[in-house]
Design a binder for these strands. Structure first.
Lengths: 212, 212
DNA sequence: AGTCTAAACGGACTTTACCCCGCTTATATT
DNA sequence: AATATAAGCGGGGTAAAGTCCGTTTAGACT
């Protein structure tokens, strides 16, 4: 079948892509995601509108790209960082850790994450795939007596990301978010996972939760 | 603080609202949700575009309204129908039943549900409130040793609705969906809830699931 | 029946994402 | 260096959502 190599990104293309991301960040910093329109972005970057679309395909694509840059660091931690997030800890512990950090990450980048979903819900959206695959892997490692692990992974990833991206992100186009809902969500996630695995609330004795 | 009654809907307003919904249904039946544009809808209904927006506020609003009509029947079943969906059964049983029926409902109306979310994620979306509140209530009735029931309800409703509305609804703007994912999702939901409540899989004896 | 007013109506206007396609250019090959 | 060509570029064009505001009308009250 042999499909030839993707023929590396051309130098000008790369330059423009980076410039556009840079300018997008600037514009966001100034007036939030809302005012980053394709026209204004192109103009301010000194490029044609067509170029913007060629580079990112869609408006949401820009924010996805922005998010990916961040997500990449995070992903490295997960793959080869120290436990409990990285390998080394038990799967349940890693599940919990993953969720907590992911929630933190999403909250820190809420505006971008929202913008990355806006319009066309469909499409893998915000790195959901990554979460789903990782959960699936950890669920496989923990030996859980559940018939359909794929579905469970899907449901859990929805439980993890959904509240932030959908429910919690209501009303005004959120730009920032304080720490309390973050803690509630993270604790909720932990409880959910623990109960799923039949761990009955390590409450009281353990000095488990000053958590910050 | 007496805020006067909302001053019932005017006759012409009601007539036009119903007509628009009717026409929208027709157009959907012919070419799917995609071709229901505000302009064409208005024109075909013989009304001005302004009227359409006045009645529904936004494109998604039309589909929400369409969904509500259906959801209303469903809601009645939940509130005063026979168990296990309606009152009379235990809370865990009702949780499971609710999820199963809700999944069925969403799959049956997937295209509309998707359209009801498209653009501006924010806003309570697709009757999520109803699901969330109902789950919250049932969780309260089951005495579950969990600190934050609100969060749990949110997470569960995401786990219930999310997969359908987001992940599963990928690729081509879905118009219909076959029965298999429905069963997997429903079974997955049941398993999830059972494990949450520490019920260890009523497998084997019960004629519950030839599972394919 | 006549009057009044909040509500509804209509459609031109604005904004924005996204498409198209002729022109330009980086880069591999000779 | 010259050439070929796939990739990139630009910006005018289209479609669709959503806004505005002057005009019309239902229906309450007299």
């Amino acid at each position: 079948m042999q499909l030839g190599k993707p023929r590396a990104e051309r130098a000008d293309a790369r330059r423009n892509r980076l410039r556009l991301l840079e300018v997008a960040r600037e514009m966001m910093a100034e007036h939030g995601t809302a005012n980053v329109t394709m026209d204004s972005l192109a103009e301010r970057a000194g490029l044609g509108k067509g170029t913007v679309f060629r580079r990112f395909g869609t408006r949401a694509g820009i924010f996805k790209a922005l998010l990916d840059e961040e997500a990449h660091r995070f992903q490295e931690q997960v793959i080869s960082g120290p436990p409990p997030l990285g390998p080394g800890a038990g799967p349940v512990e890693r599940l919990i850790a993953y969720g907590r950090v992911r929630i933190e990450f999403l909250i820190a980048n809420l505006a971008v994450a929202q913008a990355a979903m806006e319009r066309d819900i469909r499409a893998p959206a915000v790195e959901v795939d990554m979460t789903q695959m990782h959960l699936r892997m950890l669920l496989g490692q923990a030996d859980l007596d559940v018939p359909d692990l794929d579905i469970l992974a899907t449901q859990l990833s929805a439980a993890l990301e959904g509240p932030l991206l959908l429910y919690l992100a209501s009303a005004p186009p959120v730009e920032t978010l304080d720490a309390e809902p973050a803690r509630r969500l993270a604790d909720g996630w932990q409880t959910l996972v623990e109960r799923l695995f039949g761990i009955d609330a390590p409450r009281g004795t353990e000095g488990d939760a000053p958590q910050r």
